[in-house]
């Protein structure tokens, strides 16, 4: 079912809100990864506010859909989405990366650091994808109704384990598993195609037996359509390759590898927030 205009506007506003929170959280924390957080803000808005069957008041409800952020460094975006969805108070977001906080630098499910809504500790690239496959395997074998969603970075898929999992998931026909590849073309040290090229990307996933969709990761209508199609499809695991812009929404962070793992400074913070406020007004007043 295509997104109605008012739903689309609402999701855009939420995505913009996630972006503002990402900028604020990383500014307050003084460190973190804004670039790759901003590139998945639209996806998280769509998933948490339209697709995922979750219960914020009961985060470990057995029937929930599982989402694993395998690119764990984008934790600020995940935390912002979870807080906005009601898993914990929005004010808590500003404890990011502080001693004793539930919002660890990379997602955690450990003891006092367990973040409500987080399924798996990630941060070391590739592991989350494999753990998600384990969840999907259990779901598949036991006929569980819930689905498993996993978000991978494009740099992340240079890790060999990702392709182990891609192969394994096909063998076990894990059609309850949807992987999103955040194809923002960048990794910490620069552009993926300079460092270790990934293209042609879609045929690689297809070659591993996955059904593949390629979509603009900032076009919420198109993204929503791809997710709906993927949810319907049966027989193979599914990959949605999202063409995205690293740092999306903040002009000076866009396509700038400097903001892969660096928080905005004071002046950058104000500029970024100003731009996002402006964008929020634009979405609100668009015809």
């Amino acid at each position: 079912m295509a997104l109605a205009a008012q739903d689309l506007r609402r999701l855009r506003l939420i995505a913009n809100e996630i972006r503002k929170l990402v900028v604020e959280m990383t500014y307050v924390a003084g460190s973190g990864h804004p670039g790759g957080s901003l590139s998945i803000a639209d996806l998280l808005a769509l998933l948490y506010f339209r697709v995922l069957r979750v219960r914020p008041e009961d985060p470990l409800w057995p029937g929930r859909d599982r989402l694993v952020l395998s690119k764990g460094h984008a934790a600020p975006a995940l935390y912002a989405a979870l807080a906005l969805r009601g898993f914990f108070p929005v004010e808590e977001l500003f404890s990011l990366r502080r001693l004793g906080s539930r919002l660890q630098g990379h997602p955690s499910i450990v003891g006092q650091h367990r973040t409500p809504g987080v399924e798996m500790c990630t941060g070391s690239l590739g592991h989350g994808f494999a753990a998600a496959a384990g969840m999907a395997l259990f779901g598949k074998r036991t006929g569980a109704p819930w689905r498993v969603f996993v978000i991978l970075g494009d740099g992340e898929i240079q890790e060999g384990i990702v392709w182990e999992v891609a192969s394994l998931a096909r063998h076990h026909c894990l059609d309850n598993l949807i992987a999103f590849v955040d194809r923002n073309m960048m990794q910490l040290d620069g552009f993926t195609e300079d460092i270790h090229s990934l293209e042609p990307l879609a045929p690689r996933w297809e070659g591993f037996g996955w059904s593949v969709w390629e979509v603009d990761g900032h076009d919420l209508a198109a993204l929503s359509e791809a997710v709906e199609e993927a949810l319907e499809a049966e027989g193979t695991p599914k990959a949605i390759i999202m063409r995205t812009v690293k740092g999306k929404g903040v002009s000076f962070m866009e396509n700038n590898p400097r903001f892969h793992g660096k928080a905005p400074k004071e002046d950058e913070y104000w500029r970024a927030l100003g731009e996002l406020e402006e964008e929020g007004r634009r979405i609100l007043h668009a015809p």
Binding site: M120, H127, A130, A132, A133, G134, M135
Partner: peptide, 11 residues
């Protein structure tokens, strides 16, 4: 992968 798969199952 096996080790991480085990983690996903244990969860």
């Amino acid at each position: 992968t096996m080790v991480n798969l085990a983690a996903g199952l244990a969860l």
